[in-house]
């Protein structure tokens, strides 16, 4: 078992970390190259850069926007994402590992805070998972992987929390550690090749739609407005979306697809 653990935090970790970093860089560059080509091929070179920037920032930090509509969801989502990035990066034990293997390290979170953050990620994740499961609209647009991802992401947090806090026999400790390491490596490995890549692709989405697809900035909002549920949560039951479509207002966006 020690050999398996050493493998997971040695070569396998280096592989998955490098693949994650370089893979994310790769998709960003590929996307930007695509945007550039789209821009070059388009006859209409006018892009509302300011609007793109505004929208991008708006989607990057969606608090203001979502707070109005779905305060609880937006809070949970924010805590989940922030905790998920901060906790593993600033955990003392992780930093110790890097310091030993590579000689780089930085300030660590206090142990107690790290514990709370871990619990927060676990419960926020569980909340989001339940939300998806219980809301009929959300369930409808979900695929199988959307239910698997939260479970996989929770795995290293749960095992890590138990291994570092519970009083365990060394063997059980190692077993938890093993699951923790392999699940963590697996997640890192899959980030650039799955929907987890939204960590870098989400900020680019406004740019892509505006420059490459030529959707006018804010088209989505206008479509929603036109459809009659502008300020209302999209996951409300269909029965309430009764407004009629005004003539021709379905938007340019739709016709260009």
């Amino acid at each position: 078992m020690t050999a398996w653990i050493d493998f997971a935090r040695g070569p396998l970790f280096r592989l998955s970390f490098a693949l994650m970093a370089l893979g994310l860089l790769r998709i960003v560059l590929l996307t930007l190259a695509g945007v550039r080509e789209g821009y070059q091929n388009s006859s209409d070179k006018i892009v509302a850069w300011k609007e793109v920037r505004r929208q991008t920032l708006g989607w990057l930090f969606p608090m203001a926007r979502l707070w109005r509509q779905r305060p609880i969801y937006s809070l949970i989502s924010f805590l989940f994402h922030a905790g998920m990035i901060v906790t593993p990066l600033f955990l003392a034990s992780h930093i110790l590992l890097w310091r030993n293997a590579l000689g780089i390290g930085w300030a660590a979170l206090p142990r107690r805070l790290a514990n709370w953050l871990t619990l927060l990620v676990i419960f926020a994740g569980a909340g989001l998972f339940l939300g998806r499961l219980l809301s009929p609209a959300a369930r409808k647009i979900s695929k199988a992987q959307d239910f698997l991802w939260p479970l996989l992401i929770a795995a290293p947090f749960v095992t890590g929390y138990i291994a570092s806090n519970a009083i365990l026999s060394p063997r059980t400790y190692q077993e938890f550690l093993l699951v923790h390491l392999y699940a963590g490596d697996l997640i890192l490995l899959m980030i650039p090749f799955t929907k987890l890549a939204h960590c870098v692709l989400a900020p680019l989405s406004q740019l892509v739609t505006a420059v490459a697809w030529k959707f006018p900035a804010g088209a989505g909002d206008r479509v929603a407005e036109t459809l009659g549920f502008g300020d209302r949560p999209t996951w409300l039951p269909k029965a309430r979306l009764t407004a009629e479509l005004p003539e021709g207002a379905a938007g340019k966006g739709g016709s260009e697809r």
Binding site: R14, L15, F17, A18, L22, R26
Partner: peptide
């Protein structure tokens, strides 16, 4: 390129 670089780091 990315896979080879990852393998390089691992090895």
């Amino acid at each position: 390129f990315v896979f080879a670089a990852g393998a390089g780091f691992a090895l």
